[in-house]
Design a protein around this nucleic acid. Structure first.
Length: 850
RNA sequence: GCCGGGAUGGCGGAAUCGGUAGACGCAGCGGACUCAAAAUCCGCCGCCGCAAGGUGUGAGGGUUCGAGUCCCUCUCCCGGCACCA
């Protein structure tokens, strides 16, 4: 074998071998245990970035590891190909989103292939292909039949200048990204999926997912947000009609402290009151400006205005004024809330601001209530009892809620109710590059589903969006159709589906990507996914929607599994610096890190940057996830070309544990490359050397490292597996003539092969260990190699490390104590005082307390 | 604002159950080889100190023979907040 490590040749040869032997083709085989290893598919944004390399290397390490452990492994790959960036690119370059997307897929596929991932490419899919998305449409129609899909109004960001709906991302400080116009909230009709019908299942099934990280389960549980409360009504009379204002509260025990109610700007009462109150009408209009994002709603200044309309307190009959509040959302619950300023922080602030009454109705013994400032205990459910609440005085939270709910029920004005924070999933998008919603609008028949036989409704691929609304509206060939019911001319729905629909079931489609049905029997073999790997940013939405979709598919008899992903590994984000500048229209323009020079303060912290092109200043936006839109992704191509795929993979795994956030830096790549060069060189040395030296501690060292590495592998801690491999090589280089050097190197190659498969593949053959390292058994440490007769214990005096003591491996506590106290280090630091206490931790340390 | 995470040398990180803090690397420094450089190899490397020793895991407090690890309070950073994916 040649002396020099030449990654390019080695990697091409290994990849050619895998290709010709179809090494990663996965075929259903009921006689073998299956392992379905899936990494979240990428959005084809143009180029891979380091976050992808991290994600897919983790998946590949597991895939290759399980393969060597004898599992029938499936690792597929595909493309989350619909979405907004393709439309943005079209606006910029006047290229159809379809063409841009397919070009990107071709380039990124070649990048993935050059990284040597063990992917079964025959199962590749792209969600923008009709043969995929026809099943989105098909399942949507089934949901429509079952009442899971339905139509209602939705609130969207409306750009009044471009006359178009904006994504949240396109709203910057309340203004449209291209026009700079103040964005308005607008209500339009849309389709929803009734995920709340599955809320209880989605919540309780979390307990049946031991392979999921606790933090993700906690986030999902909080998102679903099951709460027990009371839904009740304030009666009122308006325009000669009796009516009810409904609200929901988890704090019915504070109902006697209600001093006003607040409704959303879109609430019928607000609309009615604004009719003959110009100031209020203006305020309602003001509330309708700004974005619909929850983060904006939660941080904006809370404002309100009285309507002059009064409702009756359902228990006391007292008059309660209705206010319009900009923080009350029509889409949540009833669009109205009761306000108890004494015991709700937001209501407290609001009441102080507008000098509204604050009535204390909860008391915690030993605490003094004061109107001066909000105190945490005002909202305490655990320790409070009712006061100033008439017949409910002295009741605790649970007793008070029960009594009040019973009284409301007796008056037919309310009852206990379980409520979820989770809202139904609005899937309509007023955008072109997505899956068409399969509906037809007929003047005489109304909205009619497209018959199954006419699926898929194919999206024309030659449109070029220009930013002013959905280009499908200008396509008569798409728009015009005949009503399936009456045969008259009709109009096709132009809204497309949220791209989360596409990614909610792709994992199942991989099992049978050529099936003539949505899924076939092969899904029963492979599902559920045994290991799912993806970014922590998907902890809630994507994973929740996928779980929901799986349950719907199960209920339709398409799948047997209740949950799509048995085990989940949430990879930390790969971060990089963000540089931007405001455009004159109020939008944001981003700059890639290589386009700027950094400005640092004395402590070395980045404070700003200047553009290399013209020296002008740009804003420093801190660090954040690598993404196409922020232009801060780092393309692995240069790394691969300079050092090879193995170095890129090794470096990425060595840099940090997978779940941890990683701030990008390429310092250390050299070290990874150096290691692989040494690995290669040692292979050459070993092939030439004769192994005649006397046995050294090498064998024990290797097996000890292997034991640790296998343990770490089980914890997905690949950085220490890589480090164990480095330590093995360090040990081997010191003893190349040891009789166990060949055994040790074979362990090292197998341990390392999932991380750096190419170089290990080549070395395995070159040293005649076998024909294909993929077929080699995974190495296990041998107990006989691990035994030792003497062990070293740490010696502490008063908790401070003072030295060590060597004792026979089988020594008992008393013998260890005697040896410790007698040791020179102990005598020195005990300063002649007697030992008050001696703590012996077996196999680890002795602590002498004097 | 709310929910979930994180913080350890100049840098990335290690420390499995509360038991030697800094493994393994990067950078740096010194040396060998070389006409020279690169590559490679050997050694040093938290901070203070000549040393003995002291001190040190974001900040402050606590529990313990012993705390990076457990408890309380706080700061900063990252992810998510339903139309980025």
């Amino acid at each position: 074998m040649q002396e020099k490590y030449t990654p390019k040749d080695i990697e091409q040869a290994a990849q050619a071998h895998w290709q010709s032997t179809q090494s990663f083709r996965a075929v259903e085989d009921p006689t073998k245990p299956k392992y379905y290893c899936l990494s979240m598919f990428p959005y084809p944004s143009g180029k891979l970035h380091m976050g992808h390399v991290r994600n897919y290397t983790i998946g590949d390490v597991l895939t290759r590891h399980y393969k060597m452990r004898g599992y029938n492994v499936l690792q597929p790959m595909g493309w989350d190909a619909f979405g907004l960036p393709a439309e943005n690119a079209a606006i910029q370059n006047k290229v159809p989103p379809a063409q841009w997307t397919y070009d990107n897929i071709a380039y990124m596929k070649q990048q993935l292939q050059s990284l040597g991932f063990a992917i079964d490419w025959q199962r590749e899919l792209a969600t923008c292909r009709p043969e995929y998305y026809r099943w989105n449409q098909w399942l949507f129609l089934r949901m429509l039949e079952k009442g899971i899909a339905y139509k209602k109004t939705q609130v969207v960001n409306w750009d009044p200048v471009d006359q178009t709906v904006l994504a949240n991302e396109q709203v910057i400080d309340g203004r449209g990204w291209r026009t700079g116009a103040i964005v308005e909230k607008r209500e339009i009709p849309g389709y929803y999926l009734g995920i709340t019908q599955y809320a209880d299942q989605l919540l309780s099934a979390l307990d049946a997912l031991p392979g999921w990280p606790e933090r993700v389960k906690t986030m999902q549980a909080n998102w679903i947000g099951k709460s027990y409360g009371v839904r009740f009504a304030f009666p009122y009379e308006l325009d000669g009609k009796r009516d009810l204002l409904w609200v929901f509260t988890t704090r019915a025990d504070t109902i006697m402290g209600v001093t006003f109610c607040a409704v959303a700007a879109e609430h019928p009462l607000a609309t009615r009151a604004a009719r003959d109150n110009a100031k209020l009408a203006a305020f309602v209009e003001e509330c309708k400006r700004g974005s619909v994002m929850e983060a904006d709603m939660a941080t904006m200044e809370k404002k309100g205005m009285p309507t002059g309309i009064f409702v009756e307190h359902p228990l006391t009959g007292a008059k309660v004024e209705v206010w319009v509040g900009n923080y009350v959302l029509m889409g949540y619950g009833e669009g109205a809330v009761m306000a108890v300023p004494a015991h709700d922080e937001r209501d407290f602030a609001f009441a102080k601001k507008y000098s509204l009454a604050i009535k204390q109705v909860i008391d915690v013994p030993g605490k003094a209530y004061s109107l001066d400032a909000w105190q945490e205990w005002y909202a305490d459910k655990q320790n409070g009892v009712c006061v100033n609440s008439g017949r409910y005085d002295d009741l605790d939270y649970q007793q008070a809620v029960a009594a009040i709910a019973a009284d409301l029920k007796a008056k037919a004005l309310g009852d206990m109710q379980v409520q979820f924070r989770l809202r139904d999933w609005g899937i309509s998008r007023q955008r072109y590059w997505g899956c068409p919603i399969p509906l037809i609008h007929c003047e005489s028949c109304g909205t009619v589903p497209v018959p199954d036989a006419q699926l898929p409704v194919v999206l024309p691929e030659d449109c070029v969006p220009d930013g002013s609304g959905n280009p499908l509206l200008k396509r008569p060939d798409f728009l015009n159709c005949t009503c399936p019911q009456c045969g008259k001319p009709a109009r096709r729905e132009t809204d497309t589906m949220d791209t989360f629909v596409d990614s909610s079931w792709y994992y199942a489609r991989y099992c049978s990507n050529d099936a003539q049905a949505m899924l076939d029997g092969r899904a029963a073999y492979w599902m559920p996914v045994d290991q799912y790997i993806g970014g922590i940013e998907h902890a809630i939405l994507h994973l929740l929607y996928s779980r929901f979709w799986t349950k719907v598919m199960r209920d339709l008899g398409l799948l047997e599994t209740d949950e799509p992903f048995a085990n989940l590994l949430t990879q930390g984000m790969v971060l990089n610096h963000i540089f931007s500048r405001r455009t004159d229209k109020g939008g944001i323009e981003y700059f890639a890190p290589e386009e700027v020079d950094l400005v640092r303060d004395d402590a070395g912290h980045v404070t700003g940057a200047t553009l290399k092109a013209d020296g002008s200043a740009v804003d420093y936006g801190g660090i954040g996830t690598m993404s196409k839109s922020k232009r801060n992704g780092v393309d692995p191509q240069a790394l691969i070309e300079q050092y090879g795929a193995d170095t890129a993979r090794f470096f990425m795994m060595f840099a940090s544990p997978p779940e941890q956030t990683l701030e990008w830096s390429d310092s250390g790549v050299e070290g990874a490359y150096r290691f692989l060069k040494r690995l290669w060189a040692f292979g050459a040395t070993l092939k030439a050397a004769n192994t005649g030296a006397a046995p050294s501690p090498l064998r024990r060292e290797i097996h000890l490292l292997l034991k640790q590495a296998n343990y770490d592998l089980g914890k997905f801690q690949f950085n220490t597996v890589a480090s164990a491999a480095m330590k093995m090589l360090n040990a081997l280089e010191k003893a190349p003539a040891d009789p166990h050097a060949r055994e040790g190197f074979s362990i090292l190659l197998r341990l390392l092969s999932p991380i750096t498969p190419h170089v290990c593949h080549e070395l395995w053959r070159a040293l005649d260990y076998g024909a294909d390292i993929l077929a080699a058994p995974w190495p296990e440490p041998l107990e006989e190699a691990l035994v030792q007769d003497e062990i070293e214990l740490v010696l502490q005096v008063n908790g401070k490390t003072r030295g060590s003591v060597r004792v026979p491996a089988g020594a008992d506590k008393a013998a260890i104590e005697t040896a410790a106290v007698a040791s020179e280090a102990a005598r020195k630091f005990m300063e002649g005082k007697p030992a008050k206490k001696v703590v012996v931790v077996p196999g680890r340390l002795i602590n002498i307390v004097v």
